[in-house]
Amino acid sequence: MADARTYVLIYVVLLVLGTGKFVFFTFDDIFTYSMAMGGTIILAVAKSLLIAGYYQHLIEEPRAVTYMMSIAVFMVFLLTVAAGYSIQ
């Protein structure tokens, strides 16, 4: 199990990543809407990996559990893309 210093560091990184999403949409002259959405998605994936890895203790699980969770997340992504495609 990680110590308190690791959790504080992960929390600070999550705050910085959350601020990054704000920055993307605040500075319209630097970032286009497509760039802001792409950056937001990348930051959201990074944040979810940090949360799942450290706060839900998946870092300490065997690799088989990690692979199973990765496949499940990929399947949810495929379902989301398919649902978005069918709505258009």
Rank of each mutant, 00 (worst) to 15 (best):
M1L: 12
M1I: 09
M1R: 12
A2G: 05
A2V: 09
A2R: 15
A2S: 09
D3C: 04
A4N: 10
R5A: 08
R5C: 02
T6D: 05
Y7P: 05
V8K: 15
V8I: 13
V8F: 03
L9R: 14
L9C: 10
L9V: 10
I10Y: 00
I10P: 07
Y11P: 07
V12Q: 07
V12R: 09
V12S: 10
V12K: 10
V12H: 07
L14V: 09
L15D: 02
L15C: 06
L15N: 02
L15P: 06
V16A: 01
V16L: 06
V16G: 00
L17S: 02
L17F: 08
T19I: 14
T19R: 02
G20R: 02
G20Y: 05
K21E: 13
F22D: 02
F24A: 04
F27H: 10
F27V: 13
D28S: 05
D29P: 01
D29N: 08
D29F: 02
I30T: 14
T32F: 01
T32N: 08
Y33D: 12
S34A: 15
M35R: 01
A36L: 08
M37T: 10
G38Y: 03
G38T: 10
G38A: 14
G39L: 08
G39V: 13
T40D: 13
L43R: 00
L43T: 03
L43V: 13
A44F: 03
V45K: 03
V45A: 11
V45I: 12
V45Y: 00
A46I: 15
A46V: 12
K47P: 11
S48H: 03
S48C: 11
S48F: 01
L49F: 01
L49P: 04
I51Q: 04
I51D: 05
A52P: 07
A52K: 07
G53N: 13
G53V: 10
Y54E: 08
Q56Y: 01
H57S: 13
H57A: 14
L58F: 03
I59F: 04
E60A: 05
P62V: 04
P62W: 01
P62H: 05
R63S: 10
V65S: 07
V65Q: 03
Y67I: 08
Y67N: 13
M68D: 08
M68Y: 01
S70N: 12
S70M: 07
I71H: 04
I71K: 08
I71L: 11
V73N: 08
V73S: 06
M75N: 03
L78F: 07
L79S: 12
L79M: 09
T80Y: 00
V81G: 00
A82D: 14
A83C: 11
A83G: 14
G84D: 12
Y85T: 15
Y85E: 15
Y85V: 14
Y85I: 15
S86E: 12
S86C: 11
S86G: 05
S86K: 03
I87C: 06
I87S: 09
Q88H: 05
